[in-house]
């Protein structure tokens, strides 16, 4: 289930209630505040595409602009990239790990 309010015109940034860290080239997201995730000792990892999306969520660009950048970095049709990105960012938003600006 994703957040229906996340569209290509949305501008998102990582929530202040999570901490993202890179360990051994793997990006992990550690919940800081309650209400993120289901338990107090859970963490989250992203695949390489997810990592690239996360690192572009800077609170300044729309998701459409981020999709433009991703299209130049990853194989796949523009429609596939947009669908995957909206799915992931929507999931992050539902979990309150990113916030719309």
């Amino acid at each position: 289930m994703t957040d229906p309010n996340v569209t290509l015109q949305t501008i998102c940034a990582p929530s202040e209630d999570v901490v993202a860290r890179v360990i051994e080239d793997e990006l992990i997201i550690v919940p800081l505040a309650s209400g993120i995730g289901d338990a107090d000792d859970e963490l989250y990892t992203l695949n390489p595409t997810g990592q690239a999306i996360w690192q572009k969520l800077n609170g300044a660009r729309t998701l459409a602009q981020i999709a433009d950048e991703l299209a130049g970095e990853f194989d796949g049709t523009r429609a596939d990239i947009e669908r995957d990105m909206l799915g992931m960012v929507g999931e992050l938003a539902r979990r309150k790990m990113v916030v719309a600006q």
Binding site: E24, E26, G37, D41, Y44, N47
Partner: peptide, 19 residues
């Protein structure tokens, strides 16, 4: 995105091997 309990973190073995 993968949600894991911290004990299930797949990097543990790799990290342990690297001290």
């Amino acid at each position: 995105m993968t949600q894991l309990e911290i004990q299930q973190f797949p990097l543990w073995d790799k990290l342990k091997a690297k001290r």
